[in-house]
Design a protein around this nucleic acid. Structure first.
Length: 1000
DNA sequence: CCTGCCCCATA
DNA sequence: GTATGGGGCAGGA
């Protein structure tokens, strides 16, 4: 099959019209294995996932080249493999690639199969003793390029990037990504010609290339850019300023040289098969089809047969032996199933399923509630999970039967499977339902064929109900007021289903139940809750979809695996609900859950769905401005430091400031490194040093650029053209929300440069943004909780609270007060909220600990109620393990009684802060829950978009501003009522403008 | 590729 | 001194 041996007439040399494709077979196998669904098996169990990916790629490259356009097809083609692990490199450095782990067991048979596949397609299959595939590729690439031909290397291996040049390109078919000079630069920080220099410094722990300790890619690139190459650098190593680095470069110079030898690919391998012999030959249809048939790759078999005119029906599957493979013991597998089945027989835990949903079932008296809660906890641990008992719902009749069952039961656990964690971009792949423990199903709706997935997707897998028809049956159930929908983190499913025209309700969320009951005791994710309450570890998402780069989307997961995973989620959710829901009554947390948690789900889902517009052009301009600013500052920094270094590396910066320049640094971080935080740099600046000032400037620009102006545009949803954050309802111990992807709760505001970013958050044309924020809400809450007369009076009279504090403490009049005095009082006020310590206050104000301690003493003398409050909270948290907000939310600190004094003090401060921060958070939640209804009732079309802890952002048509603002203020200022009468007024400032910056 | 660390943006 | 999320770097799988 290899035609290289027929050398009677030597084939013509390659020309500029030729195109040589070199496939790196060895790394392909590993990468395909990890990228593809974990278990793609032929009917007899032979694992063929990597082979399938390989054949699809091979066929596509052979017939189309890199792109479907004509004229791109290869004229020459070879697949290159490693021959054995021993190469000239292991002679230079025995450790080289010595720690390679054994390949996974199910991958072993595929090594031989891929070589067989290559030959089946009539493609040259090349390996040579003593040389790695990379060296052969390097040699062929050089030879072909010298003849003027175009070369494409098919690999994702970074070691091959050194070969890239004008005629030599690279493509990573796993990622569908072309790798050219820009990509190399992105990865190594230098062009292809300097890649080996960088690699010899940075090393590579995967291949055991040692490099120089302490030098990573970033630093290596910087050194090479400065010195040009390794030898020049080593010759000038003594001039390197950073002590540790200089020493390492000198000490490990030889190691760097060895590394360079290891990473430099040989371009002069005496190849046994000349490059001219790699000319493409036509695929032998029957031969290729025979192999593909044996592999049971139906789609590709058909495709190749069509293209070659081979008759599939008339071709027998090829027979061949496969090393490392034997048919598994069918009996053994049977046994395994039998064992699992033995535990299937679930007793029907709820004789009357419907009863669990009706309020009548929840006993009125606390003692009975506790008895029920305890019984449920025992039950949960005794009931086992059986994946084999779950049903895959494949037709409309079965789905209708499940809907009927759920309707009859009056409750159903519901979960969606999708293609993305982002509910605004996810497509529905399937839903699962559970009606009682052990009784669950999965309804696949959008699973696709995974076979053609390397260079293009497959079609819908048969045996699935059409999405539209399924939704028509599910919608009435999901919106049925008589059926409780139970989910885990239902905001996700709610938002997703909203996009499919379904508004889920009524609902219960196990994550929020857990959060209301146990905030602070641990996570509220399903896996963790399942472990905690059911003693069961559910199938992990990783097990069905993989992780990292090789992760597949759920629509590519095989339906039987998907059923086990998805139905289990619904089952587990239902079981968790049965444990957690009765605890609400028995622990008197029902009101918290029903007023502060559950109603937030639809409110936040709608906010997230609305999103906010950002001005992409403005951010792009800002990015450019920041980059320019950084470059200018950078030049100053290098001049001041007398050398270049990586400013973004705190380690290197510390070496420069405190090592080389010998500045008095003092502070170390907890790992013993020099601290280079702003406070340290500011101290240095105060002593007249210029460099720290510049560093702080650079840091600010770098932060704004990377975190905001560069990152935010990537979050613009292509469909809505807006940015949709995701709020977490259960991420904090105190009751605050958190925002992520992107985090819109930390958009800059304090500096001028930062506020420019806020200007990029804009109202759509003809509309305005309204920002409404509570003034001093936490201090007001403190005044209320701790019952401090002076503070309450000051708020009632609308005074400047910090000035008043200063006046009380230092006995100075508010009128014409020294700003410094007010600043101190302000810092103390904030310190109180944070559970003040003399240490912290001293750091904040830049005064001595003793002085700070005196301030605190003075404060407590003037406001003894604050000290009493703090002492009371400490007693409470030590006594009960939790503290509560004004609305009854609990924040747990299970480790507060630790014997470690500093840990203990930390938990005490957190416990002091929690009722203050948490009560303010509760107030915000109450306002948010009421807001939409109040606006609608007042005839306002204003839409609530964002929450930032004490601020709400709305968008409304220009002519709707005046109607909206009074409603917003009213709702926010009266948010506590009627449950609670605060003894201080709440004050809300609201403003409308075109941008967030101006509205704020 | 993942994790810990450091630093920093907000309230 | 409280509460978060996230970016860049370096080291170890």
């Amino acid at each position: 099959m290899i035609r290289a041996m027929s050398n009677d007439a030597s084939p013509p040399a390659l020309t500029a019209d030729d195109h040589l494709i070199l496939v790196d077979g060895s790394t392909f196998i590993f990468r395909a294995y990890h990228a593809l669904p974990p278990l793609t098996r032929k009917s007899d169990g032979l694992p063929v996932g990597a082979v399938s990916g390989f054949c699809n790629m091979l066929w596509k490259l052979l017939t189309e080249g890199l792109t479907p356009e004509k004229g791109d097809e290869p004229t020459h083609f070879a697949v290159i493999f490693d021959h054995s692990s021993k190469t000239f490199r292991s002679d230079i450095y025995p450790a080289y690639k010595a720690q390679r782990p054994e390949p996974p067991e199910d991958l072993i048979p595929q090594f031989g199969l891929i070589r067989t596949a290559t030959r089946a397609f009539n493609v040259a299959c090349i390996e040579q003793e003593g040389f790695e595939a990379d060296d052969l590729i390097a040699t062929y690439a050089r030879q072909a390029a010298e003849m003027g031909a175009r070369v494409t290397i098919v690999s994702g291996d970074k070691d091959l990037m050194q070969l890239i040049g004008p005629r030599v390109g690279m493509i990573d078919t796993m990622k569908n990504k072309i790798i050219g000079e820009p990509e190399v630069f992105e990865k190594f920080g230098v062009g292809p010609d300097k890649v080996i220099e960088v690699q010899s410094l940075a090393g590579d722990s995967v291949d055991n290339v040692p490099g120089v300790p302490g030098i990573g890619l970033k630093t290596a690139a910087q050194l090479i850019l400065e010195f040009g190459d390794l030898e020049t650098l080593l010759a000038n190593a003594h001039t390197i300023k950073q002590t540790k680095r200089r020493e390492n470069l000198i000490e490990f110079a030889e190691q760097a040289r060895i590394s360079k030898q290891l990473v430099t690919l040989k371009t002069d391998v005496p190849v046994l098969i000349p490059v001219t012999d790699l000319a493409v030959e036509p695929v032998n249809g029957p031969q290729a089809v025979g192999f593909l048939k044996a592999m049971q790759f139906t789609t590709l078999t058909r495709r190749v047969a069509d293209a070659t005119g081979a008759e599939v029906a008339n071709i027998e599957p090829s027979e061949f032996e496969i090393a490392g493979w034997h048919t598994p013991d069918a009996k053994g597998r049977q046994m395994e199933r039998g064992d699992a089945a033995a535990s299937v027989d679930l007793p029907d835990a709820s004789a009357s399923p419907r009863s669990t949903a009706t309020p009548a079932d929840v006993p009125a008296g606390l003692m009975t509630a506790r008895a029920l809660a305890e019984a449920r906890q025992d039950e949960a641990r005794s009931l086992k999970i059986d994946h084999a008992a779950y049903e895959t719902v494949r037709d409309l009749d079965r789905l209708k039967a499940w809907v009927a069952e759920a309707t009859e039961a009056g409750l159903v656990a519901f979960d969606t499977e999708t293609t993305s964690l982002d509910a605004m971009q996810a497509n529905l792949v399937g839903v699962s339902l559970a009606t009682r423990p052990g009784r669950a199903c999965y309804v696949p709706l959008g699973h696709v064929d995974g076979e053609g997935d390397l260079l293009g997707g497959g079609g819908l897998v048969p045996g699935q109900i059409p999405l539209r028809e399924a939704l028509d049956v599910l919608k009435p159930l999901l919106e049925d007021a008589g059926v409780l929908k139970i989910g885990q983190n239902l905001k996700y499913d709610y938002l997703l289903m909203l996009r499919y025209g379904v508004a889920i309700g009524p609902l219960d969320d196990t994550m929020l139940l857990s959060y209301a009951l146990d905030a602070g005791k641990g996570g509220n994710g399903m896996d963790e809750l399942s472990e905690r309450w059911l003693g069961h570890a559910p199938i992990s998402f990783k097990d069905v979809a993989g992780s990292g780069k090789s992760m597949i989307t759920f629509d590519k997961v095989a339906i039987d695996k998907a059923t086990a995973y998805a139905a289990e989620d619904a089952d587990v959710t239902l079981r968790l609900w049965r444990v957690l829901k009765p605890r609400l009554a028995s622990e008197a947390m029902t009101t918290v859950y029903e007023t502060l948690e559950r109603p937030m789900v639809p409110v936040l889902a709608r906010m997230e769905r609305r999103g906010i517009s950002i001005d992409r052009q403005m951010l792009s301009r800002l990015s450019g401005d920041f980059a320019q600013g950084m470059a200018a500052v950078e030049a100053d920094i290098y001049a001041l430091a007398g050398e270049t270094f990586n400013i973004g590396s705190p380690k290197q910066l510390g070496d420069i400031l405190f090592g080389k320049m010998g500045l008095p640094g003092g502070k170390k971080t907890k790992t013993g490194a020099w601290s280079t935080s702003v406070s340290v740099l500011d101290d240095l600046a105060a002593e007249g040093h210029e460099l720290p000032v510049r560093i702080v400037e650079w840091r600010q620009l770098a932060k704004l650029k990377s975190t905001y102006t560069d990152a935010l545009p990537g979050f613009i949803n292509p469909e809505t053209r807006r940015v949709h954050t995701s709020y977490s309802l259960a991420a904090t111990t105190t009751g605050r929300l958190s925002s992520s992807e992107p985090n819109l709760q930390n958009i800059p505001v304090r500096t001028e440069a930062g506020r420019k970013i806020r200007k990029a958050f804009v109202a759509d044309k003809g509309r305005k943004l309204i920002s409404a924020d509570y003034s001093q809400i936490e201090l007001r809450v403190l005044a209320h909780i701790a019952d401090i007369p002076q503070l309450k009076t000051a708020f009632a009279d609308g005074l400047d609270i910090h000035a008043m504090t200063a006046s009380e403490m230092f006995g100075v009049p508010v009128k014409d007060m020294d700003p410094m005095v007010r600043r101190r009082a302000k810092a103390i006020n904030f310190g109180i909220i944070y559970g003040i310590s003399a240490f912290g206050l001293a750091a904040q104000l830049g005064i001595s600990r003793g002085e700070a301690g005196d301030y605190i003493k003075m404060y407590f003398q003037r406001f003894p109620g604050i000290r009493d409050y703090m002492e009371a909270v400490k007693r409470e948290v030590h006594d009960k393990g939790y503290v509560t907000t004004i609305f009854g939310r609990k924040a747990h600190y299970p480790d507060v009684n630790t014997s470690n004094p500093s840990m203990r003090a930390f938990f005490e401060r957190a416990a002091i802060n929690a009722p203050i921060q948490g009560s303010a958070a509760d107030i915000l939640r109450r306002a948010m829950v009421r807001m939409e209804g109040a606006l609608a009732a007042a005839g306002s079309t204003a839409e609530m978009l964002l929450q930032v802890h004490d601020e709400l952002i709305f968008e409304v048509a220009e002519d709707g501003v005046d109607r909206a603002i009074p409603v917003i203020r009213q709702v926010m200022e009266t948010a506590c009522e009627p449950s609670l009468r605060l003894t201080v007024p709440l004050q809300v400032d609201a403003r409308a403008a075109d941008t967030w910056d101006e509205a704020h």
